[in-house]
Design a protein around this nucleic acid. Structure first.
Lengths: 106, 106
DNA sequence: ACATAATACATCATATCACGAGGTATCGAT
DNA sequence: ATCGATACCTCGTGATATGATGTATTATGT
């Protein structure tokens, strides 16, 4: 998939992946795999960014001898998803513009 | 509109703006205005990039004492639009993933 | 017993790219 | 004569996705 097209979707995908309950990095990647491919370096960068933007909170807990960082979405994060939905109308308008055929010549 | 979301759309918008006949920079911006806002620096950067990628060709012509550079889409450029259409299925799948509510919790 | 894969996190350098700021020049209208 | 519109362009900056690389533990296969 075109990298530029992905850019606007990655952040919101990560938020969507945790919106129904907390999750952790490694699991988020696997959960998103069927939908969108994301490398580890990308994911951890995004998680850090979203945390800084108060879109999610973190807690560290041990699990099977290994440390995990569990991420939970905040109200601001949920708001980000709502904003995304609103913006989608604009996106679809642009999509229509791009694919529309000119009747006079077609 | 979110800048990251725009990124995947700008190139293809420019191609769409010239797909039904040649046009020039200043006009492309005005034509796209109702659909998507693009600064001049962005547009000219994109035109240069698309030319390098053989997605469009250029000819310079005088018009009313001023020079204009007319851009015409190539087969590769039209192919790019077709690829975009194909990719849109993936984009919509991602969109559905993001907006879908979890029935068990909602 | 040993090697390999999977789990789980992280950092850094690099490349791409949108955009504001700034520049040049002509034409038409006030 | 001044100003807005037309028409092009360049440069620096900031944002960001990703591969390469690193660390450490557990599970699995042979």
């Amino acid at each position: 998939m075109d990298i530029q097209l992905k850019r606007g979707l990655l952040d919101v995908c990560v938020l969507a992946a945790i919106k129904n309950g907390e999750s952790y990095g490694y699991k988020i990647i696997k959960d998103l795999k069927p939908c969108i491919d994301m490398s580890e370096s990308t994911l951890y960068t995004i998680l850090k960014r979203l945390e800084l933007a108060d879109m999610l909170t973190v807690r560290t807990a041990e699990h099977g001898g290994r440390l995990r960082k569990y991420y939970r979405i905040t109200k601001a994060g949920l708001g980000r998803i709502e904003d995304f939905k609103d913006e989608w109308r604009e996106v679809m308008a642009i999509y229509q513009f791009v694919i529309k055929e000119d009747e006079e010549h077609e």
